[in-house]
Amino acid sequence: MGNLTLEKLQDWSKQGHRTAFGEAMVLLGQDNSNVYVVTADTTPTARLTNFLKTFPDRLFDVGIAEQNLIDFSAGLAKEGLMPFAVTLAAFAPMRCAEQMRSAIGYMNLNAKVVGIEAGVRFGPLGNTHFAMDDLAVARALPNFTVLSPSDPHQIYKALFAAAELDGPVYIRLTGAPGFPILYPDDFEFKIGQAIEYRSGTDVAIIATGAVLAQAIGAADLLQEKGLSVRVIDMHTIKPLDKAILDSVFAENRLVVTVEEHSAIGGLGSAVAEYKAGFAQAPRQLMVNLGDRFQKVGSYEFQLQENGLTEPAIARLVEENLA
């Protein structure tokens, strides 16, 4: 685990994904002197104050200007620096999708875009602050790799892996304060290679992001009832791990995708698009945020409204496995 300790992970888990991100960026900055950070009046929001202190010459704040955030980063990348452009996932990719496509994507630049607080964790703030569409947008941009890590440890790994990859990456971050450590020990993280978190033959639950924890909890409930549940951590949305999906379609009776994202264009869509080429494949159920603006309310309320809880996922599987 190098300079990453279990104490650090525990602290990141307690503070939430933003702290995990901001602190991991300091470690990445120490590891790779070509890493730069660009923010849009979001330095404290993304917990990058420590990065700024540690590397005062390697963080640029462009002001509240998301299009410029991306094109400025593209310019840095064009000349050989490796920028991480960071703002709320509500605004990047959506507010600057065209810049991500025409600058970073089209020129295949080595720039990374990080969307913090993806999904509906900002439930009380209203729909302008939800990112239900970021995977759909980022997936549609050629050349982009799309990552969606599930726990504090994987956030760290994903950032280092993104820095190793020479090309455009969008990193979607989720995980409220208290999001659990799902990988306490060192583990292998390879872009494009999903992690079989648990093996099982009846149903395969494929999840992405911090709601993997809910998928695991649902699997526990189902196992108590004697079902054999496979759990897959699909941390890379693009390129999709087709090999693991081949085995799921061959071995499991039911597929359930779980994501904190719109019904359109995210993990469920990606899996369904691939599955469309199979003459015979199991049925797929999709747990997601639907295709609607959300009501106002706490994060717990949002998850409940959308069936993104352990009992709701377990119930859905039970009802459909019979």
Partner: peptide, 13 residues
């Protein structure tokens, strides 16, 4: 304000 099902989120609807 900011409560579940409220019409008053942290940004006006």
């Amino acid at each position: 304000f900011k409560g579940d099902n409220s019409i008053l989120p942290g940004h006006p609807s």
